[in-house]
Amino acid sequence: MKLNKNNYRYDFPIIANWVKPNSKVLDLGCGDGELLNYLKKERNITGYGIEKDPDNWLKSLKTGINVLQVDLEVGLSEFEDDSFDVVILSKTIQSMHNTEEILNEMLRVGKQVIVTFPNFGYWRDRIQSVQGVMPKSKELPYSWFNTPNVHLCTIKDFDDLCKLNRYKIVDRLVLTDTKSVRFFPNLLGALALYNLVNR
């Protein structure tokens, strides 16, 4: 798979591929609104972003995003069942406390759910663990003492959670830098992207 290296994060085109044109999208932890604006441009989507951090919230507002300052940890009670075509949680799940709850909530609110996260099973992380230190990498740039991440997982872990809760995986893509990883993804992949549906 060839990816376009531009200003956007390299996982954006893959997410866009999974989003149908004109969809109604909810982006949880939308940051400065970059992904929603990318999807607006590429897929003509409409939608909302949720962002708790005041600085990021303001950045989103300035780009015209419908941004809501809501704490995801308390769930998505503002949203009705099946009220979105797609709900996205991009590189945010690892910093959430109620991980299982938010996934269930996403699948309640969205017909389709996209989750991306740094793969803690990546070989560089494993080597650092074996060396006796907490892993740091491009995808996990924090030190153990200042990381917002509380629920890191591997691709195998996430697959198991999907099985346990009967989430239906439509697509799964694993990347290292900009390249798609087909062999031993849980060992060789740095970033995992899942496309789930509610049934």
């Binding site: 109604k24 409409t46 909302y48 005041p54 919230w57 507002l61 995003i65 419908n66 941004v67 809501l68 300052q69 809501v70 503002e78 949203f79 009705e80 009220s83």
Partner: peptide, 17 residues
């Protein structure tokens, strides 16, 4: 906000500390 969301109305919401 919820009633606006139910109607797909453009809304921004801030909760200021």
């Amino acid at each position: 906000v919820k009633a606006l969301l139910d109607n797909n109305i453009d809304v921004k919401y801030a909760e200021i500390t």
